[in-house]
């Protein structure tokens, strides 16, 4: 009888562990695909020869362009550059109709956060990959995951559940992550440094 008691306890424990480590984290995110598939690798390959800054530009005014608008893509993509279905759809539904693509932004920070690329790129000399990983060499756009409760994208929240290597790019871009990097580099920080 005693064994049975412990067994029941263990089953409950195991069920919770399974749920807590696998089922819940999976169910916590709503997954959606980008409206159009896009290969960064093709664009940064030698054949095309673009660099990150060619499309994700930082203006002299200090404003980072973020995801390029249609006007950046349209000059090359007035005609289909390849035979993929996504390419055809991009031309027909967006370029031809002059409609902006509603990209899902992986690293979109919430409304109360201020972040400027300019000091991080130009003054701190950070590389794109340090925060965004090898995104620039991927063949397809990852599935976009958004937390159902907090509504933050998973790139902001981080992919792993236990933060063993907090400096890895996919460990997230939350306040602690920004703060840690500022601390490590001895950069001044206070509320208004990152909040608006």
């Amino acid at each position: 009888m005693k064994n049975r008691a412990w067994l029941t306890f263990a089953v409950g424990l195991l069920a919770a562990l399974g749920g807590g480590w696998f089922a819940v984290p999976w169910a916590m995110y709503r997954r959606s695909e980008q409206p159009v598939q896009f290969s960064h690798r093709v664009h940064t390959s030698e054949a095309v020869g673009l660099s990150c800054q060619d499309c994700h530009a930082l203006s002299d005014g200090g404003k980072f362009g973020g995801i390029p608008r249609l006007e950046t893509c349209a000059p090359c993509h007035a005609e289909p550059q390849g035979k993929s279905a996504d390419e055809k759809r991009f031309i027909n539904e967006y370029v031809a109709k002059n409609r902006e693509v509603q990209w899902l932004v992986y690293a979109r920070q919430p409304e109360n956060v201020y972040f400027s690329h300019a000091p991080h790129i130009r003054l701190a000399g950070l590389k794109c990959e340090q925060c965004h990983g090898q995104h620039g060499t991927t063949d397809r756009l990852r599935t976009f995951e958004r937390n159902r409760i907090s509504t933050y994208p998973r790139d902001v929240e981080g992919y792993s559940l236990v933060r063993l290597q907090p400096s890895r790019w996919n460990e997230g871009m939350k306040m602690d992550d920004c703060s840690r990097c500022h601390h490590e580099r001895g950069v001044e920080e206070s509320c208004l440094t990152c909040h608006k």
């Binding site: 930082l58 005014g61 200090g62 404003k63 300019a118 790129i121 130009r122 003054l123 608006k196």
Partner: peptide, 15 residues
């Protein structure tokens, strides 16, 4: 303060 942030970003963009 957002105007200060913008000024910092502008300065940083120019190094």
């Amino acid at each position: 303060h957002s105007r200060w942030q913008a000024a910092v970003a502008k300065a940083a963009a120019n190094g």
